[in-house]
Design a protein around this nucleic acid. Structure first.
Lengths: 294, 294
DNA sequence: ATCAAGTGATACCTGGAAGGCATCATGTTT
DNA sequence: AAACATGATGCCTTCCAGGTATCACTTGAT
């Protein structure tokens, strides 16, 4: 088994892409760091870093292992704190995952409510895409997630928190903004389109494809984050369909146009949690929020 | 920071509730195990086990830390395996670019084949014109492209996937459809022509100009996408030379006429990839598709 | 062409930590 | 009270991680 030191060493090198600087950051010298990484690679059984005398690069295996390593380190750093909190008489920790987009709408009020229901519980927040939230909910790394369908209803119980419509994000001053009427699908059929990734943002992708006439030849970018989308719109790369709450991002140079009623469907945000609840703080919260048994 | 050995020690003691038996399970003696736990508790900053001379019990802090410890160990045990899987190409992501036209012919069967060869690899699809595919293949943003010549044979290795003839797309009910014989160049020399863009669709443009007698004064539109062409034909704007697979687009109001043998040339579609392969999933795919070394 | 600089790997040494054995301290059982 | 059970402590030895010096190799400048 590898050690946390090796993980920290690997993370540092992966971030600096330079053994010397990484060693400096870790308050050690370069030679033992080199050996640390070699030993780690031997334990893993795969090359993590490609290095020659000029540069250091992550291999594909290294990239995925980097994610795992970060996850391990984060978990390891949080673990003692939660144990100490329990020991000091506080009643626990509630770990909440949320998508970047939900951070701008429901997260604030929800935290407010949580702090009145279980004021003595510490809340740990993590921004994660739906897929990562689901895997962490399964391993118990998260207690509750603010995520979008689809998820396995057998494993997870859920509560619909929020429903909002899609709007069209266009660059500021775009011709469509000067229309006196509501826009129709005709209006944007020739616009360059910034589209959701069908892999990482499958929910949005499916929703848009299902409810709006999309011409794939207009797709100029495929991205997975609402924030990225809006930034690209601001950079005049094209137009994009985003949930209404994206209007609260406060990005300059973007305007949002409502889509015609009936079009664009409704974006749903659910609170989801593993039916196999082990965290007593979560039981209390669900009971008092009164959406436990739906 | 604690060590994985300390975690394993703690888990063993927490499960056995007996230092001697736990030590035996860990293939060590009891004294160092006692010290290991003491050290862990000191690092955590909380008592994890309540022990007197008769029995060992978990404290509340110990119970929550036990969950964290198990989670950490599970994650740590899985991590090397997933990195190794990526390194051997049995998992990971394969990014495929394709032209709109190839989406209607070869893409489906190819994806089918890919999913049997490397079933647990995620496939990321992006529709891009040949030029964009080539630039993304060079930067490594794509692993494989379905594109048409010309491309640099030094940089890219390739495999001819598909060869099809050009057909003439005409509006439904057009006089030429009523001809009892095969059409000849004479038949369409005065038809309004929807032509490929010599810039964005250079391959088609060159092919058509090279193999068919085109009169440039008949060109009424210059477009770059096969789909657009066929749509314009359906709108009775003129006739167009399109690859045979365009018949599968399913656009109403268009008929397709075969060109005389020897005329119209063959449209080629290649799978191309950077010779400098870094994605192991791609290596595996190429090896098993048996067109890696041609 | 040669040389200086930069970078990761290797050789060798040393200090500290982890594990083993022996033993202690303490509570329980008979 | 004596034997037993169990976790803690003292002491020794081994081994490993880290440090210093140096090597091997590449690149870019003179």
């Amino acid at each position: 088994m590898f050690t946390f030191d090796q993980l920290a060493g690997f993370i540092a090198v992966a971030e600096e892409l330079h053994f010397g600087r990484a060693a400096e950051r870790l308050n050690m010298t370069q030679p033992p760091l080199s050996r640390q990484i070699q030993k780690l690679e031997k334990i893993i059984g795969a090359e993590l870093l490609e290095r020659d005398n000029r540069k250091v690069e992550l291999t594909n295996a290294g990239k995925t292992f980097l994610e795992e390593a970060r996850r391990l380190m984060a978990l390891a750093e949080r673990a003692p704190a939660s144990a100490r909190r329990i020991a000091s008489g506080r009643s626990g920790v509630l770990r909440i995952g949320f998508t970047a987009a939900s951070g701008f709408s429901i997260l604030g009020p929800l935290l407010e409510e949580i702090s009145t229901i279980i004021p003595d519980v510490d809340v740990d927040l993590q921004e994660l895409v739906t897929g990562d939230q689901i895997s962490r909910l399964m391993t118990g790394e998260l207690d509750i997630g603010l995520a979008r369908p689809p998820f396995d209803r057998e494993t997870f119980d859920s509560h619909l928190l929020y429903q909002e419509s899609l709007v069209l994000a266009v660059p500021g001053g775009h011709p469509l903004t000067r229309l006196a009427r509501d826009i129709t699908p005709e209006d944007f059929k020739d616009e360059p389109l910034i589209m959701h990734s069908p892999i990482q943002a499958r929910y949005f992708y499916d929703l848009v494809v299902r409810t709006l006439p999309i011409r794939h030849e207009n797709v100029v970018h495929t991205v997975s984050q609402v924030l990225t989308m809006v930034s690209l719109v601001a950079a005049k790369r094209g137009v994009a369909f985003v949930p209404h709450s994206a209007t609260m991002l406060g990005i300059k140079g973007v305007e949002f146009l409502p889509l015609p009623d009936g079009d664009g469907g409704q974006v749903e945000l659910h609170a989801i949690w593993n039916r196999r609840i082990t965290n007593p703080a979560l039981s209390r919260l669900l009971r008092d929020l009164e959406f436990a048994m739906e």
